[in-house]
Simulated scan of single mutants.
Amino acid sequence: MPVPPSPASEDASADESLWLRAFKDVLELDDLTEDSDFFQRGGYSLLIPQLISRYEALAGWRPPARLVFEFGSPRELEREMAARREATGTASS
Rank of each mutant, 00 (worst) to 15 (best):
Q40E: 11
I48Q: 11
L29F: 15
A59K: 09
A22V: 02
W61G: 00
D30M: 10
A57E: 02
L27P: 00
L29D: 15
L51N: 05
R54H: 04
I48K: 09
L51D: 02
Q50L: 12
K24M: 04
I48W: 02
G42V: 00
R41K: 14
D37Y: 11
S45Y: 12
S36D: 01
Y55F: 02
E34P: 06
F39A: 09
D30Q: 13
G60F: 03
S53D: 10
D35A: 10
S53Y: 01
L51K: 05
W61M: 00
T33A: 06
D30V: 09
I48G: 06
I48H: 06
L29E: 15
L46D: 12
L27A: 01
L58P: 04
K24G: 07
W61V: 01
I52T: 14
A22Y: 05
A57T: 10
D37K: 08
Q40M: 10
K24Y: 02
Q50G: 05
S36G: 01
E28Q: 14
I48M: 08
P49I: 09
D35G: 08
E28F: 12
S45V: 09
D31M: 00
K24N: 07
D31S: 13
K24S: 03
L51E: 03
P49Y: 05
D31R: 12
D25W: 04
G60I: 07
A57Y: 01
Y44A: 13
P49A: 11
L27Q: 01
E56R: 07
W61S: 05
G43S: 07
E28R: 04
D30K: 08
W61K: 05
P49E: 10
S45L: 14
S45A: 10
F38K: 02
I48C: 12
Q40C: 15
A22C: 09
L51A: 11
R54D: 09
I52V: 09
G60A: 09
L29G: 15
L46C: 08
F23P: 00
L47H: 02
E56C: 05
S53Q: 04
